[in-house]
Design a protein around this nucleic acid. Sequence first.
DNA 1: GACCATATCCCACAAACATGGGATACCTCT
DNA 2: AGAGGTATCCCATGTTTGTGGGATATGGTC
Lengths: 213, 213
Amino acid sequence: MEELMIQVAIIEDDDVIREGVSEYLDGLDNMICTMAKPSVEHFLAILNRETAPDVILMDIGLPGMSGISGMKLITAEYPDICIIMFTVYHDSHRIFESLCAGASGYLLKNTSFPEIKQAIEVIHGGGSMMSPQIARKVMEHFHTGRKRRDPSPLTRKEQEVVMGLVDGLSYKMIADSGCISIETVRTHIKNIYKKLHVHSKAEVIKKSLSGEI
Amino acid sequence: MEELMIQVAIIEDDDVIREGVSEYLDGLDNMICTMAKPSVEHFLAILNRETAPDVILMDIGLPGMSGISGMKLITAEYPDICIIMFTVYHDSHRIFESLCAGASGYLLKNTSFPEIKQAIEVIHGGGSMMSPQIARKVMEHFHTGRKRRDPSPLTRKEQEVVMGLVDGLSYKMIADSGCISIETVRTHIKNIYKKLHVHSKAEVIKKSLSGEI
DNA sequence: GACCATATCCCACAAACATGGGATACCTCT
DNA sequence: AGAGGTATCCCATGTTTGTGGGATATGGTC
């Protein structure tokens, strides 16, 4: 009997949502919530071949490791697990990052319980499902002509420095490649950090490679 | 009263489907089928500001002008009209061509009447909807990274650390999020650097985000 | 002319990082 | 039992980075 149940895990830091969904799923006759954890780290700690669920409902904005990073880890090890991202975020960047990383579905947190149930069934059956608002964004992504991004807030020289950072160069190497003093590089980087509201190379590289700059 | 009805047009050459859907929609209390035509040409002949519907259900495989060409014409002139492609085709090429041309939804012809109703309501309300099979294909389109890459040379814990780096976290933050000592993080990172032949966070982030890991 | 953004350079200090050495413990495989 | 890989921790040292102050010079703009 248990073999026919869809085994669902939920990774969500909000206690109310996690427990609410967990109890709702357990009340259904064709699925069971086998794990309900507040973070990817907690989940990974108990994940193994025996405990592996069929479907994971995962929040994106988790404390510690982000849901997207967690998904990459999990699917790398367990490619058969279907993951539904479950989030309040509407922003395109996260949506596409999730889809590219292999999410099978993307639901907003205002999704009703029956819709969550339906999504789990569909995905377990090999389908995919997205909240209408998300589908909308995916559609927009395909709508041609939508290329014009707002101009970068960075000056030409600053962008040049960012390129250097992305290439993994140190301040010294950027200075040499641009034929300027390392002090100038430092000044540029200070200004870049202010403009982008970041505090490390890592964040700049991430923003740049994900198309935010 | 009529003003509150969603005005729907259907362009479909199969008489049975066209009339069936048309009658079903007219039987609903919140929508009305104002036009039911077998081709884009017939439809365009009577389309004007007065007759313009809110939503169009359009077949792709039409005699004469294809549904995709028709959609481009219609949306160019009437950008507020939402168009749902309605088809038997599963093939990715048509799906993506439709989405790029501006379709707001994509339903397979085996979709039930109530689901068609729901799709029209969602789309008229600003959303989008796709059949699960279609959503699946769209998802797959994003699963670019799924080239059976040779397994990462990194262990799971090391991958976890890499994810932290990519998320812009410091050693301290990675340590906290993983509930391990910062010294352990340092050791992992030393090993990661050796395995990847790099010498900085920046290079790891770059390799990771460009799919090399 | 005053103002502001840009680009260039310098100094100083604290924090974070890179790298070299260790160590212990647990597994698995031979 | 021993070898090898993984995961955990510690120390020391030097380098790089992050951030706060400066300074000068060149443009455009109001």
